[in-house]
Design a protein around this nucleic acid. Sequence first.
DNA 1: TATTGTTATACTCTATAACTATA
DNA 2: TATAGTTATAGAGTATAACAATA
Lengths: 139, 139
Amino acid sequence: MTIPQQSSLLRMSTFRLARRLRAQKSDDSVSDAQFAVLATLSIHGEHTLSALAERERVSAPSMNRTVNCLEEAGYLARAEDAIDRRKTNISLTASGIELVEATVSKRDAWLTERMRALTADERDLLARAAELMGRLATQ
Amino acid sequence: MTIPQQSSLLRMSTFRLARRLRAQKSDDSVSDAQFAVLATLSIHGEHTLSALAERERVSAPSMNRTVNCLEEAGYLARAEDAIDRRKTNISLTASGIELVEATVSKRDAWLTERMRALTADERDLLARAAELMGRLATQ
DNA sequence: TATTGTTATACTCTATAACTATA
DNA sequence: TATAGTTATAGAGTATAACAATA
């Protein structure tokens, strides 16, 4: 198999699996865009609005709106920066942490159940592949 | 490593790689939702509106709107069904086929370039993993 | 009566341009 | 003057409810 053929296979399988995983949510009231923000705050901690916009590759006004919705729903909180008063520091509330954990658990449970149907060798192969995929994505 | 740990690794890497791949487009004027429709028509051929809505898991009015945009942009065409005149058959135009091929090429080129940095054994491992991921997604 | 597609309406996500407050 | 955040406005994607045409 040529390298382009291998790439094409990996691209298709990655999209299909990501799509199935994304469908596993713990709460339908939060959109994909909103959940991505909560997940980013969960993994990388407190962000200013513009840092969050840059990381999610959307405009600041767009992120501002999404943050407004999430703040209103009680999943995150804004706090004025003590030093630079133009900035607002955005972080998860207890309720936001809970929602991220519940969704991550649901997705992992869905995948774990399907991985039990594989052999130990196949699971090991997938774990090693995951490490390589991470490297490809950050390259 | 436990099965849940393997699952969690695979989930994170899949999302990261899918995100990077999705960012590789050949034309910024077509949204993700619109491109997904074009890709579905490219892979699975002609669809009625409701078949398309069901496959993309959105409502019929939502799909109708997306199809309107794509029709106006000239990427797909509606045709009346000869037998059942309630139905409209939706298929890609030459321009639509071209756009799908250009985007797929760009994504594959991006991934192929990064896979060249791996060893032959690592690429082979990823190709076998892709097959397993496809199986997990359809299970 | 049921199905297919569409229109009406409303809310979220997206963007650019313009504004406010602070540095 | 520059930067961080926000508001104004407009276009696209999502949904449910209601409608027209056809089976």
